[in-house]
């Protein structure tokens, strides 16, 4: 290595690797052991218990949160099912009510129609009767007017005829 050409002041220390300078070994080993003991006590008394507690607490919290979430999810599912059932029930109820209402309306309508038909029929029959009466009345009037007119015409022609003959003649004419 770089021994020979170095200055005299480096001669001893540069005689190879400093790692193999056994004179410094006790010093290094002593301080290493001190360091290790200090680190061990710091870790085992303070750091490691603290960190393990924190980690355990966190995993516990996460577990709890997950189970709570699971529970809530289940509840939400139940609520959804209940909602769906209620919805279906309401729908069928609405269907039923509307059907009933429709049937009731139909029945009312039918009876009203039948009643109206009956009334119309009654009214029509009444009118028929009235018309017939009027027609009969008119026929009688026509007969009377014809008799009178025939009597007057016969008188104007200068002859007389009794009522019975005229009536017979008018009736015979009207039949024809």
């Amino acid at each position: 290595m770089a021994t020979e050409t170095h200055g005299a002041e480096l001669a001893t220390a540069e005689a190879g690797m400093p790692q193999l300078d056994f004179a410094t070994f006790p010093n290094q080993i002593f301080w290493l052991l001190v360091t290790l003991v200090v680190i061990y006590f710091v870790l085992s008394k303070i750091a490691l218990p603290r960190i393990s507690t924190v980690l355990a607490e966190r995993s516990g919290t996460i577990m709890n949160d997950i189970s709570a979430a699971e529970e809530l999810k289940l509840k939400a599912k139940e609520a959804e099912a209940a909602y769906n059932a209620a919805l279906a029930e309401a729908k069928s109820e609405a269907q039923r009510i509307s059907n009933e209402t429709r049937a009731a309306i139909q029945a009312d309508l039918d009876t009203a129609l039948a009643k109206a038909d009956a009334q119309i029929a009654a009214k029509a029959a009444e009118s028929e009767k009235a018309i017939n009466e009027i027609r009969d009345g008119a026929m009688d009037s026509v007969k009377a007017v014809a008799k009178d007119t025939a009597k007057e015409i016969v008188a104007a022609l200068g002859s007389t005829a009794d009522a019975r003959t005229i009536t017979a003649a008018v009736t015979a004419r009207m039949k024809g």
């Binding site: 290493l32 200090v38 870790l43």
Partner: peptide
């Protein structure tokens, strides 16, 4: 020595991080 110094700094760094 500097061994002591740097081992002390090592301990300090460990305490700083872990504690």
């Amino acid at each position: 020595t500097n061994v002591t110094l740097w081992m002390a700094i090592t301990v300090l760094a460990i305490v700083l991080l872990l504690v």
